[in-house]
Design a protein around this nucleic acid. Structure first.
Length: 355
DNA sequence: TCCATTTGACCCTC
DNA sequence: GAGGGTCAAATGGA
């Protein structure tokens, strides 16, 4: 395990250093009359390098310690690498038994603040279609929790689900807990879109706009398609390469960022390659009270990563770049409370990472 | 008629 | 047994 960890750490550092070097090269290219192709190539390599690094980082986070289910007391099995094994296998057994059996899915949550003025603020959409299948009053919660699953569950066997609940402290903030990976066609489309839009989020918009048009008075459904800030908790790990960062970019302008209160990533989201079924950052939750609202993909400038290790439930903040796409990444301050994985990261001193 | 939502009941885990 | 997650029948809208 430790050897594996060492290898992961070194590789991670290597990838980050390479990313830095490539960025420098790109900077040089920008100052010279070099070809657009060269620049594109460098950009692609930089992105690749960082994606690898983040993947490795996921693994590292996974090593940090055992995690336990968050938020609920579900008995989800300890995380393991590779696809969540129970995700599909359960379907082979007795339907009655499996249908209600708790499954092990990657899981993370987001906190999203509703735009109070309009209730509808930008066409934000994670590109997925969700269908509400339940709602429950939760003990200790002032507001009911809504349960959604992918519309394509039956047709394509997509097992992604999400839960949406208003926060007690701030009813305008919704916590969205995502579970499972999208395996529907929408997922692959999003992944494709993401690779195209990594330098500028433009995708995933049409669906929602159409949805808004079609369902102007169904805020709940809209909620299920919108998105925003993130507080992420996940468990399990699936490292499908093609699902990394399916829509991960934050081309936000400051004035767009007034609604979302926090974007907090947890280890689990990262662990899930950030995007296994991770909706793009701008998804609004659904609630039973209102059917449609939007959130602004805001406050990315305050983008904070809330790394939670389930073992201790201790939360530590990862000072993440202002924007993943337009901020220097060298300012990360990543810390895990497991002792064996602590880093105050700086590109200038990558060796300090895993001392 | 189709599809999405609502809601009570059932099942699972702790 | 409590609490949470899911199912599925009932209901409503397009």
């Amino acid at each position: 395990m430790e050897k594996t960890m060492d290898w992961e750490q070194k590789t991670l550092i290597s990838e980050l250093i390479q990313g830095k070097e490539l960025a420098n090269q790109l900077m040089n290219q920008l100052q010279l009359p070099s070809s657009q192709e060269n620049r594109d190539f460098l950009v692609a390599k930089i992105l690749s390098s960082y994606e690898k690094a983040l993947s490795l980082f996921n693994l590292g986070a996974n090593f940090v310690g055992e995690t336990k289910p968050i938020t609920t007391g579900l008995s989800e099995s300890p995380r393991s690498f590779g696809s969540p094994t129970s995700e599909i296998g359960d379907h082979d057994s007795n339907h009655k038994n499996i249908s209600k059996k708790r499954k092990t899915f990657p899981r993370w949550s987001e906190k999203v603040k509703v735009c109070s003025e309009t209730g509808l603020e930008g066409p934000l959409n994670d590109g997925y279609s969700w269908r509400k299948y339940g709602q429950k009053e939760i003990l200790g919660a002032n507001h009911p929790r809504s349960y959604y699953r992918c519309t394509h569950r039956h047709v394509q066997g997509c097992l992604a689900t999400k839960q949406v609940q208003r926060l007690n402290e701030d009813a305008s903030v919704f916590e969205v807990i995502y579970r499972g990976r999208h395996t529907c066609s929408q997922s692959s489309q999003l992944a494709t879109a993401s690779s195209i839009n990594k330098l500028g989020f433009k995708g995933s918009k049409n669906t929602l706009q159409q949805h808004e048009k079609d369902n102007p008075k169904q805020p709940q459904d809209m909620l299920s398609n919108l998105g925003a800030g993130l507080k992420v908790k996940t468990e399990g790990l699936d490292t499908r390469e093609d699902d990394i960062f399916p829509l991960f970019s934050f081309p936000l302008t400051p004035n767009e960022c007034e609604s979302v209160e926090n974007h907090i990533f947890s280890e689990s989201m990262i662990e899930n390659n950030f995007m296994g079924s991770f909706p793009p950052p701008f998804i609004s939750p659904a609630t039973s009270e209102s059917n449609y609202f939007s959130v602004s993909p805001c406050h990315m400038s305050n983008f904070g990563h809330n790394v939670q290790t389930s073992e201790s439930d201790h939360t530590e903040i990862l000072s993440a770049p202002t924007s993943v796409t337009n901020s220097p990444i060298g300012d990360w301050d990543l810390r895990f409370d497991k002792g064996d994985f602590e880093l105050n990261f700086s590109f200038e001193n990558p060796d300090q990472l895993f001392s």
